[in-house]
Design a protein around this nucleic acid. Structure first.
Lengths: 223, 223
DNA sequence: ATTTATCGAACGAACGTTCAATCGATAACC
DNA sequence: GGTTATCGATTGAACGTTCGTTCGATAAAT
């Protein structure tokens, strides 16, 4: 059973990268949103998310988004200055949500094996709650229409994961490979499985999830 | 050192899926290409590949492809009936190349561990020889503009991989998870690593490749 | 009465595609 | 051998369409 400690057992060795991470997240949230005036805004965002997932950014026309959101095309421009701004807000919002969830669930004092499991299960939970949003942020990574702020948010998340891998390596639990390689391998495996799931090729029952999680740990762990 | 047997040690148990696979590949190659008349055709394909990788299918305009290929826009339509036909020919060609390479290198009589290693190294070799083509066929999987033939080619490849996993499971070497799940995990990890490589985030020196390959085997293997 | 929200027609630009004109090499003819 | 006919290859302007976006009119809210 997962034991989730939210504070460090030994405060002196608290990784500042975690505090930096949460601070940047808060900053981004402050900087972002103008005060939401109507739920039209939300329905436009939801419609755009679906369209972008189904047909991609360039494959989606603004009138299509408008039709799906049941508003006129011009209305979108009352809430968003451009198509680019719309996709960037979507990206930042959902990447922030998943980051927030992972960070809040993260058991800071727990052993690495437990940390890995919790992160894995939390992202799975997110992907099941918001399948479209998950596919969106995974397929639109590093696209040319993402602005600097969106890219920075992704980099922060990866720095966080890399740092955790480094700590586990120091404890001799994880293979002495470059942390970036291990992270990309593990996350790539995860995304591959989730993509197959969202395309209906596999069924994600709890038993499969647990076994896949163990398999991914086997990949990065020393044996 | 890899020992590559090209023929079955026991012909009676030769997997017909392999023969079916190579037969379909030959059929597709025959059906396809009209007699190549000029190397303009090749330069158009190369230009389109680069553009599609950099900006995606919908993000690439035909005049951009023409400019990169140093031909007039109209010339493209002398060789390809439409933009869709162009992207599908690209997909089928390169997916066929990687399939052919993997199959020819596949050591049919060797133990599963060796088979896995050879397949892995062969795809790595392809990805290093043709990085744009590799990224293209991986990012354009299951896109709406791919026709039935392109989709079928991908399915054949996956059936082949799944079949091999099934045999390895029967030998007790691979975890008793659903073969599709294992395949998606392993291939997802591979793609994640290759993507990080093509974005310059990791350097694929031989030592890293060997360790990553071992890590992926650890993921699907029993322990 | 003023501000805010919404609409949908309209805009210029750019899209994928077409096509009449031209080029260049080879074949046919004298 | 020089001239002409032929034909596929190539061009780039032009086509109709659709794109992202704008805007004036109107409705709703304050």
């Amino acid at each position: 059973m997962p034991v989730r400690k939210r504070f460090f057992a030994a405060p002196g060795q608290a990784p500042e990268i975690v505090r930096t991470f949460i601070r940047k997240l808060a900053q981004a949230a402050k900087r972002g949103r103008p005060p939401a005036r109507a739920d039209r805004r939300e329905s436009i965002l939801a419609a755009a998310l679906q369209c972008f997932v189904e047909r991609g950014f360039h494959g989606t026309a603004m009138p299509q988004i408008a039709e799906r959101a049941e508003v006129a095309a011009g209305t979108i421009y009352h809430y968003f200055p451009s198509k680019e701004a719309l996709v960037n807000e979507l990206y930042r919002t959902w990447k922030g949500v998943v980051a927030q969830r992972v960070f809040e669930a993260f058991p800071q004092g727990a052993p690495p094996r437990e940390q890995f499991r919790v992160m894995w299960l939390e992202i799975i939970a997110f992907a099941r709650d918001e399948p479209a949003a998950f596919m969106f942020i995974e397929t639109h990574n590093h696209a040319s229409y993402l602005d600097a702020q969106s890219v920075a948010l992704d980099r922060n998340l990866k720095n966080f994961a890399r740092h955790m891998i480094g700590l586990a390596q120091a404890a001799g639990l994880v293979k002495p490979l470059e942390p970036t390689v291990l992270m990309e391998l593990a996350f790539g495996a995860f995304v591959g499985m989730m993509r197959a799931h969202s395309e209906g090729r596999i069924a994600l029952v709890p038993e499969v999830i647990a076994q896949a999680e163990q398999a991914c740990w086997d990949m990065i762990a020393t044996h």
